[in-house]
Design a protein around this nucleic acid. Sequence first.
DNA 1: CCCCTAAAAATTGTATACAATCTTCCAAAA
DNA 2: TTTTGGAAGATTGTATACAATTTTTAGGGG
Lengths: 213, 213
Amino acid sequence: MKPTEPMPVRIKIASILRREILAGEFAPGEELSLTDLGARFGVSRTPVREALQALASEGLIQLRMNRGAIVQKIDDKFIMDHFEIRALLESEAAARATKHLEQLLPMAQLHRSMLERISTVEQEEFVAYNQTFHMSLWEAADSQRLTHFLMDLWNGSSIGKTTDGGEHRVKALREHEEILQCIFLKEPEKAREAMRKHLLRSMENILASYHNQ
Amino acid sequence: MKPTEPMPVRIKIASILRREILAGEFAPGEELSLTDLGARFGVSRTPVREALQALASEGLIQLRMNRGAIVQKIDDKFIMDHFEIRALLESEAAARATKHLEQLLPMAQLHRSMLERISTVEQEEFVAYNQTFHMSLWEAADSQRLTHFLMDLWNGSSIGKTTDGGEHRVKALREHEEILQCIFLKEPEKAREAMRKHLLRSMENILASYHNQ
DNA sequence: CCCCTAAAAATTGTATACAATCTTCCAAAA
DNA sequence: TTTTGGAAGATTGTATACAATTTTTAGGGG
């Protein structure tokens, strides 16, 4: 087993800043200084600069020529727009997945295991399962391009508190079940709609936790 | 008037490499060396490196830790997947635009002017109009997030030859007309479908010119 | 007191230097 | 002959140095 995964510094810094921006820890429009951030993380400006460029490409900050970066305002509208886009793309993935059922079998097995043990699984395991569920569908959609954009959107979906009560997990699991049934019955449009409902309800959950911060 | 627009080197290099990759001027899987590209463009590795990271975030190349970059294979499937995503998002934009008609008036005027003069406009002017048409709809959709992703997809849509005969222009103009009518009649679902048809037909055009290279 | 100008300071953009990792290649052992 | 180990070379990741642009600030004129 790998002791610790080697990760470029720019990725780590981008992850930290992404989480902080989405958590609302910066004021909208606040300026991000390369020197300050470098000092904070104990690295030079180079990887910080690269991290900021990555965040700009995700739309979380704005890069202005020779004038530094300012953080985007993350409000309800931002979150709703974000999930609308994710819903459009991930619904398409669910619809397409009906054409590649065999690829879904391992995930479906994990899903059944979850159904049985849901009351006793740790939060960490559920998060991992949830990620496997969604990403397996992306893969089954058989579109590198779709997977790529959904990965981007996934990173930006970790908004607000991560510790929601077990109630959300049960609902999510039921919705996953419905999505899978539509897919295995080869009903692309029903799968699309089920995925859309699932994501928009998750969004409501996130909006609620976002307000309670 | 500005004499020459100042642009970061990384943007220029990214634009050049993007066009070349989409034009198929690199073999799929070909390795891109920072040193070589720096020498080619007469700059240091730093802006080249940043350009490659931008292209990686667009999915045009793959960055491997400590092992350089390899170019993505651009084939019919890539193009079709690309336009499917663009169709999903830009259809949504068209549907949403029905809620902000006033923002569309300047573009609609330009459109009418095009209708009248189509037989005499230069290619360059039509390209500018086409960009205005699409981006005005994005703006009218009133979703920064949607605009951001569509801008990304727009950059990646310049595949193959740019000089298609005037026939395509007439067809595109007719389709634009249909889209605008649906929007101004406040029929979001019809607008969505019209935009989808427009983009998928444009895709066919691009696929054809791509094959003839 | 306000506004305009210019020099100084600070910040970003690019180039270069250094460190860490990977690849290549050759020799020695099985 | 094939394989393995490791040193040399090449390439990427990060740090630092330099150049260019912007922001700040101090001072003089209105």
